[in-house]
Simulated scan of single mutants.
Amino acid sequence: MKVKFAILGCGHIGKKHAELVAQHPDAELVAMIDPAYEQLEILGSNVNHFQSLDDFFKQKIEVDVINICTPNGLHAEQAIQCLNQGHHVVIEKPIALKIDDANAILAAADRNRKHVFPVVQNRYSSTVKWLKELVENSSLGTIYMLQLNCFWNRDEHYYHKGSWHGTLALDGGPLYTQFSHFIDVLNWIFGPMTNINSKFYNFNHQNNTEFEDSGLITFEINGAAGTISYSTSVFQSNFESSITVVAENGTVKIGGQYMNSLEYCQIGGVDRPILEESAIGNDYGTYKGSAFNHQQVINNVVDVLNDLEKPYVSLGGGIQVVESISQIYKHRNVEKIILEKEKHLV
């Protein structure tokens, strides 16, 4: 059957969702919902436009799935509304900014017997899938150390006046908006973090964000020691997102801007694989987002609802990301430390 989709939130990523749904042979885009719908390009004559969820629900249009592509702080409330109206939902990352809200989505999904598909498309990258298989096969032996680096650029064009970006209520910070994808990869492959300690800095976003732009985190995962270093203060353009694994039987690094390339591989008894590099990041003009594997997300949703396969990403995975980031913030430094050049920890 053709799966009918509505897109809630028609900014950069919402338009991407709409394009991919419209292109899918077994999907149909029936509605787009956004307060600024009059400025949107119409994708086909059969696409209805609404200014709000309430307006959309009143029309009782037949739809199977609602893709939530709105600001982060709205995701949980809107997901629960859609589930209570009897629709499956696709939720862009993060599914929520608070763990209680994430669990409330789970309760609504269970109550209404509907699917929730978190969008964590980096799991589809060939490099990430290969690393997961490597760990599951115990090819690396005991893992000693993990290093996650996320170094991107977000400047005044991104955090412009009047934007939801930069606010605690709707954005939440770089761990939620930029780097939750890579927290998910860490969780998915290695497990949840424990014994977390974190420090946050704000180097050059004091005038346009309500949160840190950089952080240093230490943790443990199943006996391995780990670090996360992240920043949105990188000059001019995104630099890298990478995971380095130091283990008993070898050392591996997947990197590039979006963990899309195998940068180092030295493993006893295992040949270096030839992996197809994932698609480049979503290009939004003044900045680039995460790796563009969204077509595979839409494919999975369509196939699940046609009983052809199981969900590739569980709602539990989306909840675990929110839990991990919540724990990082919970175990942040509480003392205000002044750096050499009067730059302050957040």
Results as ranks from 00 to 15, higher is better:
His12Met: 09
Lys15Gln: 14
Lys16Asn: 14
Lys16Tyr: 10
Ala18Asp: 03
Glu19Ser: 13
Gln23Lys: 14
Pro35Asn: 06
Pro35Arg: 12
Tyr37Gln: 14
Leu40Gly: 07
Asp54Arg: 15
Lys58Arg: 14
Gln59Gly: 05
Ile61Asn: 05
Glu62His: 13
Asp64Thr: 13
Ile66Val: 15
Cys69Val: 15
Pro71Asp: 02
His75Asp: 05
Glu77Asn: 14
Cys82Phe: 06
Gly86Lys: 08
Pro94Gly: 02
Ala96Phe: 09
Asp101Thr: 07
Asp101His: 14
Ala104His: 11
Ala104Phe: 07
Ile105Lys: 10
Leu106Lys: 15
Ala107Gln: 13
Asp110Asn: 15
Arg113Ile: 15
Arg113Pro: 06
His115Asn: 15
Phe117Lys: 03
Glu133Leu: 11
Asn137Met: 11
Asn137Pro: 01
Leu140Trp: 02
Leu146Ala: 10
Leu148Ser: 00
Phe151Leu: 12
Arg154Met: 02
Tyr158Cys: 08
Ala169Glu: 10
Ala169Pro: 00
Ala169Arg: 11
Ala169Val: 05
Gly172His: 02
Leu175Asp: 00
Tyr176Asn: 04
Phe179Met: 00
Phe182Met: 12
Ile183Gln: 00
Asp184Glu: 06
Ile189Cys: 05
Phe190Met: 03
Gly191Tyr: 01
Gly191Gln: 05
Asn195Leu: 09
Ser198Tyr: 03
Asn204Val: 15
His205Met: 04
Asn208Tyr: 08
Asn208Trp: 07
Phe211Thr: 01
Ile221Glu: 00
Ile221His: 00
Gly223Met: 09
Ala225Asn: 13
Gly226Pro: 02
Ser229Pro: 00
Tyr230Ala: 07
Val234Leu: 04
Val234Tyr: 06
Phe235Ser: 09
Ser237Trp: 10
Phe239Tyr: 14
Val246Thr: 12
Thr251Ala: 06
Val252Ser: 02
Gly255Glu: 03
Met259Arg: 00
Ser261Gly: 04
Leu262Gly: 03
Tyr264Val: 06
Ile267Glu: 02
Ile267Cys: 05
Ile267Gly: 06
Ile274Met: 07
Ile280Ser: 12
Asp283Trp: 04
Gly289Ser: 13
Ser290Met: 04
Phe292Met: 09
Gln296Gly: 01
Val302Arg: 11
Glu309Cys: 15
Lys310Asn: 13
Leu315Phe: 10
Ile319Gly: 00
Val322Trp: 05
Val322His: 04
Val322Leu: 09
Ser324Ile: 09
Ile325Gln: 03
Gln327Gly: 01
Asn333Phe: 06
Val334Phe: 08
Glu335Asn: 14
Lys336Ala: 13
Leu339Ser: 13
Val346Phe: 10
